[in-house]
Simulated scan of single mutants.
Amino acid sequence: MNVDLFDFTLPPERIALRPAAPRDSARMLVVRGDTLADRIVSDLPGELRAGDLLVFNDTRVIPAQLEGMRGAARVGATLHKREGPRRWRAFVRNAKRVRDGDTIDFGAGVSAVASDRGADGSIALDFAGDEPVELLLERAGRMPLPPYIAAKRPTDARDADDYQTMFARRAGAVAAPTAALHFTPALLDALAMAGVGHVTLTLHVGAGTFLPVKADDTDDHVMHAEWGRIDRATADRLNATRAAGGRVISVGTTSLRLIESAADADGIVHPFEGDTAIFITPGYRFRGIDGLVTNFHLPRSTLFMLVSALMGLDRMQAAYAHAIEHGYRFYSYGDASLLLP
């Protein structure tokens, strides 16, 4: 499909620079078939049914943004995928100043050797020393806010909490599964009272989620792989929910993409562990999910293509036009939508 079909104009003032407080006070646009309804996230229990199951991503964002020196040259690195105990693949700013075998000093006693430049321009970084890389990043790294926020303000102490979900347990993401940022313990309690359950899985979100689609046709776009895991107990719960007539509602496109990677042609979700580079565009037949809670996405992005595949392109263009006209806040710290085809 032509990527231009997924374009729309977003006024810059619609980009949220801070999350709503409290988290579940964010607005929520409910798209149910052809109808639109303006709600807030705390209304979610009344929009779902007893027996439904919400699926959250329990990945934890690491301080994956690094600034360093290669000799006299300043370079920046954004880690995006772990390749070994001490090796991470990274997108590097000023990468033309970095050659294979060069050491980059990130300060605070943290350094890495660069090698293996990829076709996408990324570089492998092998971190020196014996300390776990996670400890090195805690010393030298900072929270990797999305570029559309980082371009408008610096990362600060608030982001260390704001950019983690309440489910964050397993370190490894370089971007938050932002739909879950809206959830609070009180909201989970209200959902449980309404008969709505929840489970978690793990997908370590990579920086590739923010890369623009540069191809003119979706067939020519290459997705970056991300590592994920669904254990047997979670897979069994997903399958049992649907068998009993309940709906599986993904909270975020990350949990949706992992479920769809693990589901077979009959809609049965199997345990999964490994990389997924699934790319969902209109025409895709969904196998393992029945609905989605998600934020509002970038124009021409793979995520806007995904929601258009779920709900229909014309319907999502209309929903986004409604959101823009009625002052919804967009992107990672923005408002939510509940999509029920």
Rank of each mutant, 00 (worst) to 15 (best):
14 R>E: 02
189 D>P: 07
248 V>Q: 00
86 R>S: 10
276 T>Y: 03
102 D>R: 05
296 F>G: 03
273 E>T: 13
60 R>S: 13
331 Y>G: 05
217 D>Y: 07
32 R>D: 15
267 G>V: 09
254 T>Y: 03
209 T>D: 03
69 M>A: 13
207 A>P: 06
240 A>N: 12
208 G>I: 07
24 D>L: 06
274 G>D: 09
217 D>Q: 13
13 E>I: 05
120 D>V: 10
110 V>C: 01
216 D>F: 08
70 R>N: 15
121 G>M: 06
341 P>T: 09
301 S>T: 11
296 F>H: 08
79 L>I: 03
149 I>H: 06
21 A>H: 14
276 T>V: 00
220 D>P: 06
7 D>H: 15
106 F>N: 01
336 A>W: 04
262 A>W: 00
137 L>T: 01
266 D>F: 09
209 T>F: 08
75 V>C: 03
218 T>A: 10
239 N>A: 13
119 A>S: 14
243 A>C: 11
254 T>I: 01
66 L>Y: 04
232 R>V: 13
12 P>T: 10
97 R>H: 13
245 G>C: 11
30 V>F: 06
305 M>R: 05
198 H>K: 10
183 F>C: 04
243 A>K: 14
229 R>D: 09
106 F>E: 03
285 R>Y: 12
60 R>M: 12
325 E>N: 12
228 G>I: 01
195 G>I: 05
45 P>Q: 12
313 L>P: 04
77 A>K: 05
21 A>C: 07
224 H>I: 12
296 F>W: 09
111 S>H: 05
73 A>M: 10
223 M>T: 00
168 A>K: 06
64 A>D: 05
2 N>I: 06
129 G>L: 13
265 A>D: 15
114 A>P: 01
314 D>R: 14
276 T>C: 04
221 H>W: 02
276 T>K: 02
51 G>K: 03
107 G>P: 00
312 G>M: 08
338 L>S: 05
112 A>W: 02
180 A>M: 02
108 A>S: 14
178 T>A: 12
133 V>A: 07
325 E>F: 09
